[in-house]
Write a protein that binds this DNA or RNA. Sequence first.
DNA 1: TATTGTTATACTCTATAACTATA
DNA 2: TATAGTTATAGAGTATAACAATA
Lengths: 165, 165
Amino acid sequence: MLNPTESLATAPMLSGSERLWATSVVRDLAFLLARANALSLAQANAAAATHGLKVRSYTVLAIAVSDTRPTQRELAEFLRLDPSQIVALVDELESRALVRREPDPSDRRANVVVATDEGRATYASAHATVADSERAIFAALSAEERTTLMEMLRRLAGAPDALSA
Amino acid sequence: MLNPTESLATAPMLSGSERLWATSVVRDLAFLLARANALSLAQANAAAATHGLKVRSYTVLAIAVSDTRPTQRELAEFLRLDPSQIVALVDELESRALVRREPDPSDRRANVVVATDEGRATYASAHATVADSERAIFAALSAEERTTLMEMLRRLAGAPDALSA
DNA sequence: TATTGTTATACTCTATAACTATA
DNA sequence: TATAGTTATAGAGTATAACAATA
């Protein structure tokens, strides 16, 4: 009845379960990563929902807006989703006229996903909302710490070596 | 057909999707957090599966082993799961005689979850496997960086202030 | 009247296989 | 023969509501 998506900031300082922080799991990086991610994800989903999006569709839209003209296969590989899930995501965005499928000139089997003008507009406002809501969560860290965290996560996430600011 | 759980280390340096790292999403802390977590989770699940566990059940078992004698309600609160999900997790662990439900003396409505001897043994070997597999993932960071990361994640995960080593 | 554990149910997400059209 | 996109389906995970026993 109170689930991950709900009442995060509103929680009144969780009663008796707080003592479980004395447990060994909380010294486990994977556990903390999962927990931090759950909080961040819930926040991001709530923010994206304001614009009729979920993090998944928001992310696909963000990539479409970037003008990298990814094929669905590339999206699947990059987001580590099955190609069939990309179909559903692109279907949904396309039905709302936020993206278009264009035939890849160099391979007639492949579709390239591009944002429409409306998609760009939606992304712009969604991005503002999402970024804003994340600031609230990552405010637990200083600007310098956030930079350090990003650099570490990039390595854990398997990003290629170039740093990018 | 290639999904998160599969072929992580085995992946042959992902072909054309690598260029999508030039996209703006990869400068998004939440995105990187989600991606790092997906990798870590897949690894941990694979390791736990060796002992017939998933991260969820492994975590519950870890807490049971800690002798903090949590009620199911406390587990639900701490793990941010619905109480009904805890029922299923404890049912499964109890059917395998890894944990026991004991009546809480101070509240006859509540059950307290405790590990059996077999549960302790299973946890010990599962913990070794899981910790080992995680070392592989977090090897991308130095020991010092791992400490820094843990401290940051603890704050993001909403841990109480005391540091704990 | 509120809370703990439980059951039931609907819904979303994830995983897998098979088909088509191109290469 | 292999690959891109698609469809279908089954299973796991998540969300919600209601009930019995106890507070």
